[in-house]
């Protein structure tokens, strides 16, 4: 749905380069590419440290999405594919990344990436992706000790939030703040199915609810749903949230309230956690291979 061609679900693509680092001085440049169901990210690391990233919307072709994500990093940094020593692919499309040297599951990559972004104290990671939701426990090294994933239902995922943004004709970036701009917390909409939640949201709008109140009800439903998922394996502080919905303050605040645990903050966009973990794995694997090859 759109108003005058406007697509409210469209989130912003973006890129970033660390201005204090120079890849020409690095010994080893590695890359991680996460081709997810909704977004694709490429991250470049210099000697195992985050250097640059690029986020694009995933298209119909995983190889093309991976290339587009990587191209953004190359264009912003001046790097070329020949400069990258090792690339790890992850995410749904990980087996379809033609330039990847190895594919690693997104569970392991998110664990490693969150460990880097949130620090070694992070023990529980909630990844709210485009079309799935994962809860991961890690040790101090970022190694996964317990995980659970649900990708059968769109409720509690980014896609569900996109549907609500389009339905209410509210830009997706505004959903979080607007969900907190209410007089009183409403009951959650159906937290079972995004299709039913959409119908229910429409019914409540017709019943006189404001858009903000409907958004709040949907954010609450999403928070309740993922909190149930977290409850299956428990939450051990420190708690860290990754994925696109980590940018939705309305969902994050409600999850924190339900769990009674604050989420650790990161200065870097946590949507790149999977690709970052992949780039860090790439660095480890490259060094391991070089060591194994001998002098």
């Amino acid at each position: 749905m759109s108003v005058a061609g406007r697509e409210f679900w469209r989130w912003s693509e973006g890129s970033w380069v660390d201005p204090d680092k120079d890849w020409r001085r690095a010994e080893v440049v590695t890359m991680g590419v996460d081709v997810g169901s909704v977004s694709s990210e490429a991250v470049a690391c210099l000697d195992g440290e985050l250097y640059a990233y690029n986020t694009v919307r995933t298209g119909a072709s995983s190889p093309d999405s991976a290339r587009a994500a990587a191209r953004g990093v190359f264009e912003k940094t001046g790097l070329s594919a020949e400069d990258v020593r090792f690339t790890v692919g992850t995410g749904y499309g990980r087996v379809n990344i033609p330039f990847a040297d190895k594919a690693i599951t997104e569970i392991a990559c998110h664990g490693r990436g969150a460990n880097y972004l949130g620090g070694p104290a992070v023990r529980t990671i909630l990844d709210m992706g485009g079309q799935d939701c994962k809860v991961i426990h890690v040790d101090a090294g970022g190694k996964v000790t317990n995980f659970l994933m649900n990708d059968k239902c769109a409720a509690g995922t980014g896609r569900g939030m996109e549907v609500i943004a389009d339905l209410l004709e509210v830009p997706i970036e505004e959903l979080g703040p607007r969900s907190l701009d209410i007089d009183e917390e409403p009951p959650a909409v159906s937290d079972v199915c995004v299709v039913f939640a959409k119908s229910e949201a429409m019914a409540r709008l017709k019943g006189g609810w404001s858009k903000n109140k409907v958004i709040a009800a949907y954010c609450r439903a999403m928070a309740e749903r993922v909190s149930t998922l977290i409850g299956r394996i428990g939450v051990e502080p420190e708690f860290f949230i990754t994925g696109g919905i980590s940018k939705n303050v309305g969902v994050v605040k409600r999850i924190e309230r339900i769990l009674g645990v604050g989420a650790r903050q990161s200065a870097v966009d946590t949507q790149i956690a999977g690709a970052l973990g992949a780039a860090l794995f790439a660095h480890t694997l490259y060094l391991k291979g070089r060591k194994g090859a001998g002098p």
């Binding site: 000790t145 995980f147 659970l148 994933m149 649900n150 059968k152 239902c153 998922l229 299956r232 394996i233």
Partner: peptide, 9 residues
């Protein structure tokens, strides 16, 4: 590692 394979609906 404890791996939960499956889904919930």
């Amino acid at each position: 590692m404890i791996a939960h394979h499956g889904y919930e609906d």
